[in-house]
Design a protein around this nucleic acid. Structure first.
Lengths: 339, 339
DNA sequence: TCACGAAATGTGAACGTACACATCGCCAAC
DNA sequence: GTTGGCGATGTGTACGTTCACATTTCGTGA
């Protein structure tokens, strides 16, 4: 039994016990070449015996590498960002990195600057951003920090490196599905105006509608929540000049359907609804929701790969895109007139 | 313009420019007393001018305080844990702390040990655990690390310090609601067997059923997912020897309702369903779900307060409980016979 | 047997900060 | 005018590690 009061063992303690110099212990730790197997074994044994753990702070001080990745994310409990975060942590840990997260209360430049200072104070080696608000990117452009950054869930052209599920393609997929069913009056319930994803989905929607030469309804600008979808649904029910709605995400779709049903509209009988994200619950909504699936965890994992690749070598601007998939379920059907 | 190649400014650079010693700069940084206001101003000005940021690694090395809180969490995108995490980060940042998260793939002792080593290597000052599996706690007991720990979402008696929404009380609330409506044949769709929350909700359910002297149906053991709820719903539909189900969480309740409807059972006409958690979507389910509300964000914030309090002074074992609330909506009604 | 080179190991410094203690200057009280 | 005391500031050192370079050890061929 060790006296519990004493400080943690350091590299010199281990060295003394193993009868070698501290540098030799350091070599074993960083598995450098030219170490006699017997020496390595002895050192390893003493490390085990003393319960020695290298002090990360000291390491970071001398190497100025913290082996930490920062994640800046919007404060949302939504499925997508959260799942991506888990993907990031998975990949980071596999690569021996730590993950320090930082949530943003509000997307204003002030908060972002504060968050970033907090994070860079930690000497992070790279940053993943899962807060795809336009304002966040504007803030970044002003700050130009010197570490590699990868942005998630955004579309091309906004950051130095970005990785995303192709939101425009996904939105087109969803909209064309409605058009193919025979719908001509389609409303889009969009996400918050300053979210890049929302913008991209809107773009995809408008492109698809434009290509089919349909009337363009003014979009609703929401906030991603089911509550908002519900309120929007009430508004929409008053007009009834549409037969289908493309919702910016599954939660808003859920609220919409709720309001439609409360207002006496049948889904998909009177109106078809498509969502976006394919959260695990979407298939159990009533009716099961037709939506666009994206692989968030994969996104997170690949963002780390991209980041760590950049930490080493460096290339130019790169953008990777993952293709989303349409999942047709029971919330969509041909409009009444067709049937 | 500075030559961008040079290293980051350190405390001595600032001192030189301000014409004082590095120690004086250090005093300004840690706002120690006995600094002439004019000196402080001059130092502050130079800090601003050079863009100096204190090096956290050096600080951590000398003080052996990292100003970092570790969070160990189960790899789940569920609303509850995620929201609590945001609460933790909020409170931590307000207190000037960093948060390093660590997700657990599997709840085995091996993973936990690895995760903990990863985390303690970072010299965290405290740990919040949002992975309320029984096995996780067993692992902790074996490890007995020397830093303060607060566990979340668990019930009394498992950790040194725990903070929780009283799950037993919540489960009793839900079950009594069903009993008060006149139900006598109630089934419980529980969470995974080794989750402490699941255990507690089951306990609350059994107590309420016992107090009312009702027949005890064997519970179903699920995995928190809507998919499982759906499969369980199919199973249950075959028997139909019950009039109400208390689901361990909202997602499972959703799947259940889906299966019931597919099987020709009306909710709440033929069977009442109660959930747990009150995720933001629950009120938009069809029918809107009666469930038990818990304030996850508050839980997270208070866990940090508890932890940081402990980092300073120390007291004995403490347990705090937050009371949950029943939210009655439209998925519950008296059984057919009563009406 | 000796010298030589490579393998194996050791020594001195540096990273940037905070703590303990030393010193300086100044004013008031005697 | 000296002394004490306190406010303000400076100096030395330690934290635990890695890097650059120096030194020792060992096997090998002449």
């Amino acid at each position: 039994m060790e006296p519990p009061k004493s400080r943690a063992p350091n590299i010199r303690d281990v060295a003394r016990l193993a009868g070698v110099s501290y540098q030799t212990v350091s070599r074993v730790l960083n598995d450098a070449p030219s170490i006699r197997p017997s020496t390595r074994a002895r050192v390893l044994e003493m490390i085990e015996k003393t319960g020695y753990r290298p002090n990360q702070a000291a390491r970071a001080l001398v190497t100025s590498k913290s082996r930490t990745i920062g994640v800046l994310m919007a404060q949302t409990a939504n499925y997508g960002p959260t799942t991506s975060l888990h993907g990031i942590e998975d990949a980071a840990r596999d690569a021996g990195y730590f993950v320090t997260t930082m949530t943003l209360h509000k997307p204003d430049v002030e908060s972002i600057k504060a968050g970033l200072e907090h994070l860079t104070g930690q000497a992070i080696e790279g940053l993943v951003v899962i807060a795809p608000q336009v304002r966040v990117f504007d803030a970044f452009r002003k700050l130009d920090l010197s570490i590699p950054i990868v942005t998630l869930d955004s579309t091309a052209g906004h950051g130095p490196r970005s990785l995303s599920v192709d939101q425009i393609a996904g939105a087109k997929l969803a909209t064309r599905h409605l058009i193919d069913l025979g719908h001509t009056e389609i409303v889009h319930l969009a996400g918050p105006q300053d979210w890049i994803e929302a913008e991209a989905r809107m773009t995809g929607f408008l492109e698809a509608v434009g290509e089919a030469d349909l009337r363009t309804h003014p979009p609703f600008l929401g906030d991603w929540t089911a509550d908002f979808g519900y309120r929007a649904g009430w508004e929409l029910t008053r007009f009834r000049d549409f037969t289908a709605v493309f919702a910016g995400n599954d939660q808003m779709a859920l609220g919409l359907i709720h309001a439609f049903r409360a207002g006496g509209l049948d889904v998909p009988g009177d109106v078809s609804v498509v969502g976006f994200d394919d959260i695990p619950e979407a298939r159990h909504f009533w009716p099961p929701l037709t939506t666009v699936h994206q692989n968030f965890a994969e996104l997170g994992r690949r963002s780390v790969a991209l980041l760590l690749g950049e930490v080493g070598g460096d290339g130019g601007t790169e953008q990777e895109q993952i293709l989303p998939e349409l999942r047709v379920r029971e919330s969509t059907a041909p409009p009444r007139a067709q049937r």
